[in-house]
């Protein structure tokens, strides 16, 4: 196996931070979050699952799509093209899996989402395997694993004295310049993939339960907040709005921004004129779960859930996606 010491890894990260936009897990007031870093100082190497996914760095919560200038009656529209390369370091495999889910819609369905493609192209994803599964994790139920290399460019696994490095893609290999690698005998031990296996019912089984009473039962507790969708590595709903940034005589500057949206929010389906075709909380959470396990796989291929468990641990009223999955599996069997 290829091996790197902790010290050599830090040297490499320090170098990367000079050359690219480097993002890594950090402790932010007691919360583990992926954050831009200027060096290896403050980068966490031992952590559980960052509370937010790394989605924000590929599909930002707020992204300027266009800069708009109006001079009199003349318009100029300029697209924002990020110049620098980006490295996401310390990704958990579920975060890369989440990116692959969004790829299936934003990149693999025509027309390609231009802003997302730019973010994706400039980014290299360096994973750090979870040594084991954490509270709420069920990645192994939905095609993932705590040490899965799929969808990453490089995967690091903690071993005695440092990390085993697995090169997954050419993009990953290209990043290795400056990383002092050694050859060592043996292979890194696999992670403890001992999480509960949650049954995943096929889309057709979900379809038979669209009118089931369980949506009422789970949905009634829902607060219509956006936590589950915002912490999710695979949720991709967005809104597009304009904001004026400056007004001078003869020159108005504005931006067209894309912001995260959430199908759980009250007015998600409110149309101009006030009609709301999904006015109830049970109807809205049903849509979220159906999107993940019925619509997304039917329309775009992959499941819309990577089993990271973030929505489970962060829901203030204990709406638990695995409880829903089990409920669907049980009911559709009967």
């Amino acid at each position: 196996m290829k091996f790197v010491t902790q010290d050599a890894l830090r040297v490499w990260l320090d170098q990367l931070a000079q050359e690219v936009d480097l993002v890594a897990p950090r402790d932010v007031e007691g919360h583990v979050l992926y954050r831009p870093v200027a060096s290896s100082a403050g980068v966490l190497f031992e952590y559980q699952r960052p509370e937010m996914s790394a989605k924000d760095y590929l599909f930002p919560a707020t992204e300027v799509l266009l800069q708009i200038e109006q001079r009199g009656k003349e318009m100029t529209l300029e697209e924002i093209v990020p110049e620098r390369k980006q490295v996401l370091f310390g990704l958990r495999p579920c975060d890369a899996h989440g990116a692959a889910v969004i790829d299936a819609l934003f990149l693999q369905q025509e027309p390609v989402d231009a802003a997302y493609r730019r973010q994706r192209e400039r980014t290299t994803m360096v994973g750090l395997a979870c040594p084991r599964m954490w509270e709420g994790c069920f990645c192994t139920s939905v095609g993932g694993a705590p040490d899965a290399a799929d969808h990453l460019d490089l995967l690091l696994r903690e071993v005695d004295g440092g990390y085993a490095v697995q090169v997954v893609t050419e993009k990953g290999a290209a990043l290795l310049a400056g990383l002092e690698l050694q050859e060592k005998k043996g292979e890194p031990p696999p992670s403890q993939a001992d999480g509960e296996i949650v049954p995943v019912a096929p889309p057709q089984a979900w379809r038979t339960l669209f009118e089931d009473e369980m949506w009422q039962r789970h949905g009634e507790r829902c607060l219509s907040c956006r936590i589950c969708t915002y912490v999710c590595p695979a949720c991709r709903c967005f809104d597009v709005v304009d904001r004026v940034t400056s007004v001078q005589p003869g020159l108005t500057c504005s931006e067209r921004i894309r912001v995260w949206d959430a199908c759980t929010s009250t007015n998600y389906r409110r149309a101009a004129g006030g009609h709301n075709s999904r006015p109830t909380k049970p109807g809205r959470i049903r849509n979220r779960f159906f999107c993940k396990f019925c619509y997304y796989p039917e329309d775009f291929g992959p499941l819309g859930c990577v089993g990271c468990g973030r929505c489970i641990v962060s829901c203030p009223v204990d709406i638990d996606i695995t409880e829903v999955m089990r409920g669907v599996a049980e009911r559709s069997d009967g």
Binding site: V28, E29, H31, L33, M52, A61, L223, S224, C225, R226, I227, Y230, V241, R243, A262, S265, N267, P316
Partner: peptide, 27 residues
Amino acid sequence: RCIRCYACRQVCPGCYCTTCMFERDDG
């Protein structure tokens, strides 16, 4: 750190405006 998930507003029994002034479509 706020992610604007609006959980604080949604859980609050005192926050019941039909359209929150911070979510107006005219911003």
